[in-house]
């Protein structure tokens, strides 16, 4: 009995570890390649661990080749930061307000409205792309970081509203009721009852929006000029042209992935909660 059990357990661990390898080996390849020197990169040794370890490719990926006027992804990375921070902050504020209204101040038709808002989360963005470009052009925000921020805030409304609404649904109505009896108005209740309880909600939404906006590509490639180009576009451009050297491409991939990976490592618990909140209603 005991023996059979341990055998099963060994099998379970074996399978789990095998899948861990499936998830990790692309990452291994990225590290192994990006820390190689140019001279050491060749197809026949692509899976070998680099020796010596070199940061050459990271410098190239970040700076490009200035002497040939080829841009690295450094500028794109900074653009992404400039885009993602304000977009995330505004998303959080809007989502929190919407969630507050839709959970604690329902009105006739608010459920229908909520469903209509939610639909916006699922649409393929190709279906709004052309009018979006022309609209941004008409308000002079096309090909700017501000334009990208606006777009990400607007199309982030459904998911942020959903997460906050579900989050606030867990706050007992009695608390709101009690505050109202004390004479608190809409804003007072928000500030003194909901907001203090909201920190985890804000963290979840902020992480979610941060990763989504950072990783987004379609808007980034369509609504960006060279100057406002986010990191994902810079990386994709690098792959297609000058840098056929794989170590530079992989270094670039690692640089672009670093912020979201970092967030994931540091705040993984909340990240998971954001994912699940995005996945499941109510």
């Amino acid at each position: 009995m005991i023996r059979r059990l341990t055998l099963t357990r060994a099998l379970v661990y074996g399978v789990l570890l095998a899948f861990a390898i499936y998830y990790l080996f692309p990452l291994y390849l990225v590290f192994a390649t990006s820390f190689k020197r140019f001279a050491d990169v060749s197809l026949s040794t692509m899976w070998d661990w680099p020796s010596p370890i070199s940061l050459e490719s990271f410098a190239q990926a970040w700076n490009g080749r200035p002497e040939a006027n080829i841009r690295g992804i450094g500028d794109g990375f900074l653009n992404s930061v400039r885009m993602v921070v304000p977009a995330t902050v505004i998303s959080c504020i809007l989502g929190s307000l919407n969630g507050y209204v839709l959970s604690k101040w329902r009105f006739r038709g608010s459920e229908t409205l909520f469903t209509l808002i939610l639909f916006g989360m699922f649409i393929p963005y190709q279906s709004i792309l052309i009018p979006l470009v022309r609209f941004l052009q008409s308000i002079q925000l096309y090909a700017t970081i501000s334009g990208l921020v606006l777009v990400h805030v607007v199309y982030g409304i459904p998911i942020t509203t959903l997460i906050f609404r579900n989050y606030y649904a867990g706050v007992p109505n009695e608390l709101v009721e009690a505050a109202r009896i004390d004479g608190a108005n809409f804003f007072r209740i928000y500030r003194s009852v909901l907001l203090p309880l909201s920190i985890p909600g804000f963290v979840v939404v902020a992480i979610w929006q941060f990763t989504q906006i950072w990783n987004e590509y379609l808007f980034a490639v369509v609504i960006s000029s060279t100057r406002a180009q986010p990191a994902t576009v810079a990386l994709q451009n690098m792959g297609g042209g000058q840098f056929t050297e794989y170590n530079v491409q992989m270094a670039g991939a690692l640089i672009v992935a670093a912020p979201t990976l970092l967030v994931y490592v540091l705040l993984g618990r909340y990240f998971l909660r954001g994912l699940l909140a995005g996945a499941m209603k109510g």
Partner: peptide, 14 residues
């Protein structure tokens, strides 16, 4: 779970 944190562009490149 970590691949979820990556951009599809990064995933595709790799």
């Amino acid at each position: 779970l970590f691949p979820m944190a990556l951009s599809l562009i990064v995933t595709g490149t790799i």
